[in-house]
């Protein structure tokens, strides 16, 4: 019979091994995707790589009529930027409204949560039917934009709620006591302090919109966004070209996350310095 201390250590090792195995399991496909995207011109969709080259990246750049990823890439980027800006404005307004504890703010909160809980396939499909009944043409810059904001907005809202929860209201009080109007106080005091959180909400909106598939699929109209173009290409033929696009997209997301984490960290640092 081994003592409970060594048994505890044994559990620790077992759980640790499991965690490491899972992390490998989770990351290995992503690294493989990156590795295979650099395979030679004769490379297939799996190992062996048949040499290393930038062939498939060139292939993405050199467009053919059948598969040209540049217009979808441009559309996805513009759409994501528009969603980010809309998310920033609306979520800041909504979070500021929650501070005012207006009548029915509980319902409002659940309405926003519903946007996160409701699956994209139901929202996208329902919205497509609604547009069909209203006789509205589907298009990436109108209908898809409307639906995607309903997905990015709740995340921005939760971010801004968290930001305002940590916010020190005494600085606002000081400004108001000194005779500044509420609007001036918000513009000159509150806004500069919450800017890192606002940027976080914007990056959230950007990356969620950029990667969104089900909501876009039902509401897109004739011109596809990047995830839809990738899926369409997948249906025709799988080549390392898709891996090249996947690698670029993943790198892009990773950079966005790093910026986001850094922004929040900087904000926490600046607020904690102020408290000290």
């Amino acid at each position: 019979m081994i003592g409970w201390k060594s048994r505890l250590r044994l559990t620790g090792w077992l759980l640790g091994t499991l965690t490491v195995i899972f992390l490998i399991y989770q990351w290995l496909p992503i690294f493989t995707l990156g590795l295979l995207s650099f395979s030679g011109p004769t490379g297939g969709t799996t190992f062996p790589m048949n040499g290393t080259s930038l062939h498939w990246y060139e292939e993405v750049w050199r467009a053919t009529v059948m598969n040209d990823f540049k217009p979808p890439l441009l559309r996805s980027t513009l759409l994501a930027a528009a969603c980010a800006v809309t998310t920033i404005v609306l979520s800041t307004m909504a979070a500021q409204a929650m501070r005012g504890r207006f009548r029915g703010n509980g319902w409002f909160f659940y309405l926003m949560l519903l946007g996160i809980m409701a699956p994209g396939i139901l929202v996208g499909f329902g919205f497509a039917i609604m547009m069909r009944l209203l006789g509205v043409e589907l298009s990436w810059d109108t209908t898809t934009f409307l639906v995607q904001v309903s997905w990015t907005l709740p995340f921005g809202f939760l971010t801004m709620l968290a930001v305002f929860n940590r916010f020190d209201t005494r600085v606002e009080e000081a400004a108001l006591t000194l005779g500044a109007s509420r609007l001036t106080t918000f513009r000159r005091i509150t806004l500069p302090l919450i800017v890192p959180g606002v940027i976080g909400a914007g990056l959230f909106g950007f990356s969620l919109s950029y990667d969104e598939y089900p909501r876009s699929m039902f509401t897109i109209g004739p011109d596809a966004t990047l995830p839809l173009a990738v899926m369409a290409q997948l249906d025709r033929q799988i080549t390392p070209e898709i891996y090249a696009i996947g690698t670029m997209t993943t790198l892009f997301s990773l950079i966005a996350v790093t910026l986001c984490t850094f922004g929040l960290w900087a904000m926490r640092r600046s607020t904690s310095l102020r408290r000290a």
Binding site: L90, A94, G100, R101, G126, L146, V147, S150, F157
Partner: peptide, 23 residues
């Protein structure tokens, strides 16, 4: 505070709640 919440609420109602009821 009420009016600040209206745009977000209207957006969510129009794009999430109404389409699902419609379904």
């Amino acid at each position: 505070s009420y009016w600040l919440a209206v745009p977000a609420a209207a957006w969510m109602l129009g794009v999430v709640v109404v389409p699902i009821v419609l379904l």
